[in-house]
Amino acid sequence: MNWLIDLIELVAAGFVGIVAADIFISVMLRYFFSVQIPDAYDFGRLLLGILIFWGIAATSYRGTHITVDLLYANVGPKLQRFIDVFATLVLLFVVTVQTYTLYDKVWTTKADHVLTFDLRLPTWPFFLVAWLGDASAVLLIAIRTYRLIFQPDEFGTKYQIKPVE
């Protein structure tokens, strides 16, 4: 299962590189040669959407997204684990609903024949790739939830109660 997690994180990292290259090349061509890539704006916004959904997948499993630790830092390991399981279940529900609605968006975009401005390329493949990132997030959050409940040792010594000395 770890190879799948690593693959999804690698794909997310690849999209970071693609978005950075798109922005860098567009700016350099405009600044030095007064040339604009056709549909650069459309590609930029569509690729950024893809990056966001694959980024959700990459950060959700590791638990490296933004957190507020005011309560969490002041409770014991058992309650911390309970909070983690509860928060991950809520995240799983929210991202599952989001994935369902994005799936609908992919097919309505295809049915409506939405195209880019300059090259008149269909936009639905970009939405499909974004949906795959969102579906990957659901899979990784489900794996995280399972491991938090049944294999907490996968997350190191975080939940072990330390003896009082």
Rank of each mutant, 00 (worst) to 15 (best):
Y41P: 10
L89C: 08
I25S: 00
D22T: 12
D69R: 04
V68E: 08
V95E: 03
Y31N: 09
K105Q: 15
L71S: 07
G44F: 09
I83R: 02
L132W: 09
P38Q: 07
T116V: 03
T101I: 11
L29G: 05
K110A: 15
A87Y: 00
W54S: 10
D112M: 05
I50D: 12
Y72D: 12
L70G: 04
H65A: 14
T101F: 14
V35C: 07
F24E: 03
L91D: 03
R120Y: 10
L91Q: 06
T99V: 08
L70S: 06
D39N: 14
H65L: 10
V75N: 13
I56P: 00
V114S: 09
A73M: 07
I66C: 08
L46D: 13
R81P: 06
L70H: 01
I37L: 13
R62Q: 10
R45D: 13
I37R: 05
D69E: 09
T59D: 00
F126W: 14
R30W: 01
S26H: 01
I25C: 02
S34C: 00
I25A: 05
D22H: 13
L132D: 09
M28A: 14
D22G: 12
T108L: 11
L46Y: 11
Y41T: 12
L91C: 05
V35Y: 11
G49A: 14
L128V: 07
L121K: 11
W124A: 08
Y103G: 14
L51P: 03
L70Y: 01
S136T: 06
Q80D: 09
T96L: 11
V90G: 05
D118Y: 09
T64N: 14
K78A: 15
F93H: 06
